[in-house]
Design a protein around this nucleic acid. Structure first.
Lengths: 260, 260
DNA sequence: AGATTGTTATAACAAAAGTTAGTTACGAGG
DNA sequence: CCTCGTAACTAACTTTTGTTATAACAATCT
């Protein structure tokens, strides 16, 4: 009971999703959480849908924390081809330490409207030096981000179109679930088929074909912006999705927003 | 003259290649270099060609520094498909901080025979806490590694077979050049075509076809284990290789081993 | 309401890449 | 020097994926 009460205090914290994510790795003290939330409150910003947050060539700034909405890292080639390199979901930190570099080698843009917290480098430094547990958790966060990037290399390099798409959907679902943004076996999927195509290295037409295929075998539904994965374990097996690279500790753990 | 003399002292340091690489980012003090070299001397290990250094599922250990030879990170799917995720060249550090994780989500294997230094986590901690400049340089090192991983996603996702292969060759050449392991426009390339195939997500047959194509347009020669890039700028343009993601500071800077 | 634009869905065809099945070249070891 | 195993190369054929075009539909703007 008392435990529940403490949790309630943090319900509605700005850094809510980040805290939930980090607690898959370690449990944070009330002080850790408070410090993190304070850091997130310093400066928040709202960016509209399909807009750029940072652009390739920019001077890197402090750390950004996604509070709400979806963003993505991407890179554009001279002839217009674009590759989406990563999705940034609520609770994701971007560019921890990147201020060391002279210029950004890629851009970050929004998918939906996004609310983000800009955490100054100095605040970040204080956070990590004063809170050992938290510092470790943030380090875990960036190791997981690197592991996801590696998995994407595997996904695009080795898997068939069917597996690639299914794998992406599994990953997004599991990551959203880890921060409590799923409702049962459904979650939001605000991506257009063109964006999915630029993510998994296929043409829009082929993404459409492959989506039809995933639907026709009864693994998923996708209407409007809502994705439903009917049997996650079946989809995982069908596309060889092994969530170990997300290092969530308690792998199959269910954490719906209506269940806490 | 005096400067040259100081440099000569470090000629032959175990951490020689790492030091050269880091000096593309910042200049290190003699003390920094000595500390780094001491760390590398603590425990070195020799692994024979095509052998595993760490295996997926292992408990992560301290940091490894490649002193000599080529290694790679890779991941294998259940049905045997394999993706090479990264190449580890002399001077590359692997798994800075990875000891935080419960288990390795990928394997690391050698390509050639490899000499590596195992730097204990504690030594690493001392290094970074006692040497601010060095600590920053190591941070840069890991940011560059992440940038390379992102570029590979772009490479496999968006580029044609011709561009993919050319891009890989450019990257390897430039990275080797950054540590002084090129001879003019030539460098070692100890990869089999099967390994190249697993790197850029193509079949062996198609890698062979594409290599023929790169040869026939006169951009490269590849005999035995020696790669020659006849006109680097032409190849860069042909495959849209932009080295900014390597963050080497002085981009086109020439640094041959016979030129220092 | 009407026009504009973006997204999804399809079909027909073209191009790229994979598969299979070899042959040839080469280097290590007996 | 020869044999054996690996790697490189080649050709014929198949499959996957991309391209172009078009239609239906939805969302947004005027």
């Amino acid at each position: 009971m008392c435990y529940l009460k403490i949790e309630m205090v943090w319900w509605g914290a700005l850094a809510e999703f980040l805290i939930r994510k980090l607690e898959h790795f370690t449990s944070l003290s009330s002080d850790d959480k408070q410090a993190l939330d304070q850091a997130a409150r310093q400066r928040t910003r709202r960016i509209r849908s399909r807009d750029d947050i940072v652009h390739e060539g920019d001077l890197p700034q402090g750390v950004n924390l996604i509070l709400e909405g979806w963003a993505c890292r991407y890179k554009t080639l001279e002839d217009g081809r674009r590759q989406i390199i990563a999705y940034l979901l609520p609770g994701d930190l971007c560019d921890h330490n990147v201020a060391i570099l002279r210029e950004m080698d890629h851009s970050i843009g929004t998918v939906t409207a996004v609310t983000l917290a800009e955490i100054p480098t100095e605040t970040m430094r204080q956070l990590t030096s004063g809170h050992a547990r938290l510092s470790q958790a943030l380090c875990w966060e960036s190791l997981v981000a690197a592991a996801i990037q590696r998995e994407w290399t595997v996904n695009i390099g080795q898997r068939t179109a069917f597996e690639r798409l299914g794998h992406l959907l599994c990953e997004l679902y599991v990551r959203l679930r880890a921060v409590g943004l799923t409702q049962g076996c459904a979650c939001e999927l605000p991506l257009t088929q063109a964006e999915i195509a630029d993510t998994i290295g296929l043409s829009v037409v082929h993404v459409n074909r492959t989506l039809q295929e995933l639907r026709s075998v009864g693994l998923i539904s996708l209407r409007g912006r809502e994705l439903t994965i009917h049997r996650l374990d079946a989809l995982q097996r069908a596309v060889q999705f092994n969530p170990n690279y997300l290092h969530l500790g308690r792998e199959g753990r269910h954490l719906d927003s209506n269940e806490v």
